[in-house]
């Protein structure tokens, strides 16, 4: 810093510690709640420190879930969430990277039109056209399937633009050297382009995994069979039942389980996460 003002510095630290606490508060409260028994909330005083039922609550939810709410075991829902997040992340990356390759490295009729078709999807988020999109998926018989959960969500203008940007920074000479070395388009794509984009792919994967895992409205509509419930959408069904019979400790355990995988991804891949976040906004 420019001048040495210990007072100001201390104030900044205090401010940050306060900020971190505010940000962490809801998760702490949820964590505490998830470690108590069902009676802890009846007494009228809210516990502020963890109780003794952590293992019991979590293992119960993972293995059998809350039968009264009609949701399956949380472990099963987490598996569905994982499948959905992986399919969406991988699917978006695959179709975007090939689209960007076609748009950047080829000249063909209606190239501009194809580009605009992809661009327009930016202006059509699923929440906005939810009813007719649901209709299409229902007509195609894709309700209650992993395909229905994932495929309608994997078109991505953002990812296509990201890869387009990456490809545009790759020097022309590299492509020319590859052509002279006898590499056709697909060989160039596999041997040169993909390896050179791998950190961008990894960064994007982190963002898209979180995006896929956190989907709510779409799985809520598409899945009516408990077999396909994802954890984020399943929580609401669980909370619905709670209104009648408060099982807060179990709902909060589920909420913790729902946020742990993506939060761990952000914490342990922070560098890739930040890169992905900044790049997708370019």
């Amino acid at each position: 810093m420019i001048e040495n003002r210990p007072g100001l510095h201390l104030a900044a630290h205090l401010l940050l510690i306060f900020g971190v606490c505010v940000v962490a508060l809801p998760v702490w409260v949820a964590f505490v709640a998830s470690t108590h028994g069902p009676t802890a909330f009846m007494s009228g005083t809210i516990p502020m420190w963890p109780g003794p039922h952590l293992v019991e609550n979590y293992s119960r939810m993972l293995d059998s879930g809350l039968s009264t709410s009609g949701t399956p075991a949380v472990g099963h829902m987490m598996m569905n969430s994982l499948i959905m997040a992986m399919c969406i992340a991988v699917g978006k990356i695959v179709i975007s990277v090939t689209s960007a390759f076609a748009i950047v490295y080829f000249r063909f009729p209606f190239r501009g039109l194809a580009f605009w078709c992809i661009f327009v999807t930016l202006m059509l988020p699923v929440e906005v056209r939810i009813v007719p999109t649901f209709q299409v998926v229902a007509d195609l018989g894709m309700l209650n399937s992993y395909a229905g959960l994932t495929i309608p969500l994997i078109a991505s203008a953002t990812a296509t633009f990201l890869f387009r940007q990456v490809f545009l920074t790759i020097p022309d000479e590299l492509t020319e050297a590859a052509r002279i070395d006898g590499a056709g388009p697909m060989k160039f794509f596999r041997d040169i382009l993909l390896p050179l984009s791998r950190t961008n792919i990894a960064a994007l994967f982190v963002i898209l995994f979180i995006y896929g895992w956190n989907q709510y409205l779409w799985p809520l509509l598409i899945t009516t069979s408990a077999d396909y419930y994802t954890i984020v959408a399943g929580i609401r069904r669980m909370a619905d039942a709670v209104d009648g019979l408060p099982q807060w400790h179990l709902v909060m355990a589920t909420a913790m389980l729902a946020m742990i995988p993506p939060v761990l991804v952000v914490i342990f891949m922070q560098r890739l996460f930040v890169k992905g976040l900044v790049e997708t906004e370019k």
Binding site: E173, A177, R179, G182, I192
Partner: peptide, 27 residues
């Protein structure tokens, strides 16, 4: 270009950055 039996040396070298020197030569 690959069918013309020529080799080219570029101004900025155009070496494949993700390949070792050996792989660059062998590609």
């Amino acid at each position: 270009p690959a069918e013309r039996d020529i080799a080219m040396v570029f101004q900025n070298y155009a070496l494949y950055p993700h390949m070792s020197v050996r792989q660059n030569l062998a590609y």
